[in-house]
């Protein structure tokens, strides 16, 4: 996957982007667009989680902290300081990055998977409780509302673009741009020397170390980038949904959903988390009537995938084609 892309792969990527860009021409159904917007928010989240977990080999279970920090920071700054959401989204992402570095530093020093899992989980729990306890600022579980929407602007040829709850279209294109940018950033990191060294480190730590690979600083950087991207996703979510509660924005359910997405799609692949986000967000909506069974199904799904298909669904396709090809040639 880290060879230079072949032309058919470029074509596939281009087709995917064009299809996504054209969806609103086929349907303006606001419910359907909403599902796609959620898919893309989770697509960024799952891809960024996969960057540290699948690629950098740091198994964190607390990335929902950065989603919540991004969401609440952007919402609170735009409400209290009166700044434009276009600006606060980036400030919030930087706040998430700072927290990411704060928690990334000690976990990189210990270099033990269970410690990393425990500490990140505990950190996210601190963030959730602090947000829900500081009721005078965040209104706790009552919900933070009155979060301003993105300001509209004028585009040549298209005319005025307004972000209102009634029209999902501007949100759709905004999150699509953010998603493409995020995946591009992740792909660029993984194709750099750092990325290749990280893969080497993950696959054979001792061998890589013996060749002089030491990645503590780069891994910290990657952790920061990941926190930044998740922060952006959270901030966008805040201004899109326009009401936040600690359970919805920093709940552990969120992390479980994202882990399930990355596992179902395929950990350590670029497309896996995106495929997983599409499948699971779609599944959530299909199961709307069976809401009580939703988490039960996720739990079962994580168990089954880990037990029987540890590399996820995206690895199923090449496996099947290979089997098919070998059958037809013989």
């Amino acid at each position: 996957m880290f060879q230079p892309l072949k032309s058919w792969q470029w074509l596939l990527i281009a087709t995917a982007i064009v299809v996504m860009a054209l969806v609103p021409l086929v349907t303006r159904n606001s419910y359907l667009l909403h599902v796609f917007i959620l898919t893309m928010i989770f697509g960024i989240f799952a891809s960024a989680w996969n960057l540290v977990t699948g690629f950098a080999g740091l198994k964190t279970f607390g990335h929902h902290a950065f989603f919540g920090i991004g969401a609440y920071a952007s919402a609170l700054i735009s409400i209290n300081a009166g700044l434009s959401p276009w600006l606060t989204v980036w400030i919030a992402a930087l706040v998430a990055t700072v927290f990411g570095l704060f928690i990334g530093l000690p976990i990189l020093r210990i270099n033990s998977m269970p410690h990393v899992a425990i500490v990140t989980l505990g950190f996210a729990e601190i963030v959730r409780i602090v947000i829900s306890n500081l009721q005078s600022i965040t209104r706790g579980e009552l919900g933070l509302w009155g979060i301003p929407a993105f300001e509209g602007f004028n585009l040549p040829w298209i005319g005025e673009v307004n972000f209102t709850p009634a029209d999902k279209l501007p949100y759709y294109y905004l999150i699509l741009v953010l998603l493409i940018a995020s995946v591009a950033v992740i792909a660029l990191i993984m194709r750099s020397r750092t990325g290749l060294a990280m893969i080497a480190m993950r696959d054979a730590e001792e061998a890589a170390e013996s060749l002089g690979v030491n990645l503590t600083r780069q891994k910290l950087l990657v952790f920061g980038v990941s926190a930044f991207l998740v922060g952006v996703a959270g901030a966008f979510y805040a201004h899109y949904i326009s009401i936040l509660t600690p359970t919805a924005a920093v709940g552990i359910d969120l992390m479980i959903l994202v882990i399930a997405m990355a596992l179902v799609g395929g950990l350590s692949t670029l497309s896996g988390p995106l495929v997983g986000a599409l499948i699971l967000t779609g599944a959530v909506e299909l199961m709307r009537d069976l809401d009580d069974y939703r988490l039960l199904v996720y739990g079962a799904m994580v168990i089954l995938i880990v037990m029987f298909l540890p590399k996820g669904l995206v690895t199923l396709a090449p496996m099947l084609t290979r089997r098919f090809a070998s059958h037809s040639s013989s």
Binding site: I259, D292, Y293, L296, A300, M301, I303, V306, M307, P310
Partner: peptide, 24 residues
């Protein structure tokens, strides 16, 4: 192979599954 992570992931799945089974 990869048991260090897969065991953590599977117990996470079990945790969610058992919680929601208990809820139901």
């Amino acid at each position: 192979e990869g048991w260090l992570f897969s065991t953590i992931a599977v117990t996470l799945g079990l945790s969610i599954f058992l919680q929601n089974a208990a809820l139901l």
